[in-house]
Amino acid sequence: MKPFTFDQIPVMMNKIHDKLEHLEKLITRISATGEDKDELLNIEEASKLLNLSVPTIYSKVSRKEIPVNKQGKRLYFYRHELMKWIKSGRVKTHLEIRNDIEKRSRI
């Protein structure tokens, strides 16, 4: 960075101010998404999120197929755990399988 003159101080201060505002917005946005990680859902909310009926969710809970937290007679679900559960069921494409095989054969 080149040194600046006394006359350039106001311009530089404005640039610094703009960058700080931008950083504040980014930090606020990141903090807000971090709060969603601990978002607790009841069974009806989980049903809507997963697009499954409530009886189907009860069935999956009883077979221990879905991550759940139980407090008394109530069931609670963490949004991030449900999203992770959904992602764990991802089926690889033929290309991905072929690439995995090629990588293993090189080892």
Rank of each mutant, 00 (worst) to 15 (best):
T33A: 12
S59I: 01
L52Y: 11
Y58W: 11
T28W: 02
E21L: 12
T56N: 11
S62C: 02
S62M: 05
K64I: 01
L75N: 09
K60V: 00
E24L: 09
E35G: 07
I9G: 01
P55T: 04
S62P: 01
I27V: 12
L23P: 04
L23Q: 15
H80S: 15
L50P: 09
D18M: 01
D7Y: 07
G89D: 02
F77H: 10
L75S: 12
T33K: 14
L95F: 02
R29W: 03
F77A: 09
K103V: 04
F77D: 08
L49A: 07
D100R: 07
I9R: 10
Y76V: 04
R29G: 03
H80G: 02
Y76F: 15
I101F: 04
K25I: 02
M83R: 14
K73T: 13
I101N: 01
H22Q: 14
I30E: 13
R90Q: 13
L52N: 02
V68Q: 12
D18C: 00
Y58V: 03
D36C: 06
K37R: 12
L50R: 05
M13L: 14
I66L: 10
V11P: 00
T93F: 03
W85K: 01
I86G: 04
E96Y: 08
I57N: 08
E35S: 12
S47K: 00
K70P: 03
K70G: 04
E39I: 10
H17G: 05
H17M: 10
K25E: 13
E44R: 13
I97K: 07
M13C: 05
E24R: 14
K25H: 08
K87R: 14
F6Q: 12
S31M: 08
L75A: 02
K60Q: 14
K103Q: 08
E45R: 03
L20S: 11
F4N: 03
V54N: 14
Y76S: 11
K103P: 00
T33R: 15
K37D: 04
K37Q: 07
G34Q: 14
P67T: 06
L49Q: 09
K48P: 00
F6R: 12
P67R: 06
Y58E: 03
K73I: 05
